[in-house]
């Protein structure tokens, strides 16, 4: 009898402890860190939605779109694309921002949640399938609020730089938004620093920054002047392009390559610069 009782008591305690372990303390943090823009999408999918309502979970699993379909999609529409990593900004706080491109077109993927370890594996050329939402921020068309991504086993693809020099200053340039692009034979034009001096580049757009901040510099094709950027999150201080731009002189003719980012107009993020004259 004693043995039976011991077994009974032990069993009851084990059961009790199991019940305890099965519930998460209220103060316990979520196991996986959420991103700032994560919406409670799953729950909305459980409800019988009204005709116009599109729960995120359903739409996040949409079929892979062509570039044309992506461009035709409305802002805020769920989108899924397969594309290749071309370059990444620095991983930060569980997310990465990427410049990607496939044979059809280019996609800027903003703040995709990913662990630091997994991010290391996303080397240039890696094919990924990404589901998120189409967004436009200050003119830049992008995929934001990424719901899921998957690495696809495929031959790596690195895009050749598309020469868009002739499209500078035209409406046509926008069709190359986010492309890895080449800009050839442009001349370094002066920027004006806060003291009124003519300089070849500025730290931050108005010269209020310091070494390590974004570099802004002007180039001209002889007719128009354009603002180019060395984006510090992409190629910061110490990188070849950062140091090369700091060495530029007004009047030098240069060739450049970089990603055709958009901020209220073209704002290329330059990854290489070569002085040709």
């Amino acid at each position: 009898m004693k043995k039976k009782l011991v077994v009974l008591l032990t069993a009851s305690l084990v059961l009790g402890l199991t019940a305890c372990g099965g519930s998460k303390p209220a103060a316990e943090p979520a196991a996986e860190e959420k991103t700032e823009e994560e919406a409670p999408a799953e729950e909305t999918a459980e409800e019988a939605p009204a005709e116009e309502e599109a729960p995120a979970e359903e739409t996040a699993a949409a079929e892979v779109m062509s570039y044309a379909d992506f461009m035709a999609a409305e802002v805020d529409d769920p989108v899924t694309v397969e594309t290749y990593v071309q370059a990444k900004q620095g991983w930060w706080d569980g997310a990465v921002t990427m410049y990607t491109q496939n044979e059809e077109g280019a996609y800027f993927i903003y703040n995709m949640p990913i662990s630091e370890e997994d991010n290391e594996a996303l080397v240039p050329g890696t094919k990924i399938r990404v589901s998120g939402y189409k967004a436009v921020f200050s003119g830049e068309v992008e995929i934001s609020d990424v719901q899921s991504y998957e690495v696809i086993d495929a031959e790596p693809y690195i895009a050749e730089a598309t020469d868009v020099t002739a499209a500078l200053g035209t409406d046509d340039l926008e069709t190359y938004m986010n492309y890895f692009a080449a800009f050839k034979g442009l001349t370094v034009a002066p920027s004006t620093d806060p003291d009124g001096n003519e300089v070849a580049y500025l730290y931050k757009w108005d010269g209020s920054g310091n070494d390590g901040d974004d570099l802004y510099f002007n180039v001209t094709d002889g007719t128009n002047t354009y603002s180019f950027t060395v984006e510090s999150y992409l190629t910061g201080a110490g990188t070849d392009v950062y140091e090369a731009v700091k060495a530029l002189e007004i009047g030098q003719k240069i060739d450049m390559e970089g990603f055709l980012y958009w901020y209220e107009g073209p704002n290329p993020h330059i990854t290489s610069v070569t002085v040709v004259e």
């Binding site: 700032e36 823009e37 994560e38 919406a39 116009e52 599109a54 729960p55 995120a56 939402y133």
Partner: peptide
């Protein structure tokens, strides 16, 4: 921010959504 995005995406925003 979340409610604005959800509404723009035509998601269902109701009491259950708010609770979550």
């Amino acid at each position: 921010e979340n409610v604005t995005k959800s509404e723009r995406r035509k998601e269902k925003v109701d009491d259950k959504y708010m609770k979550e």
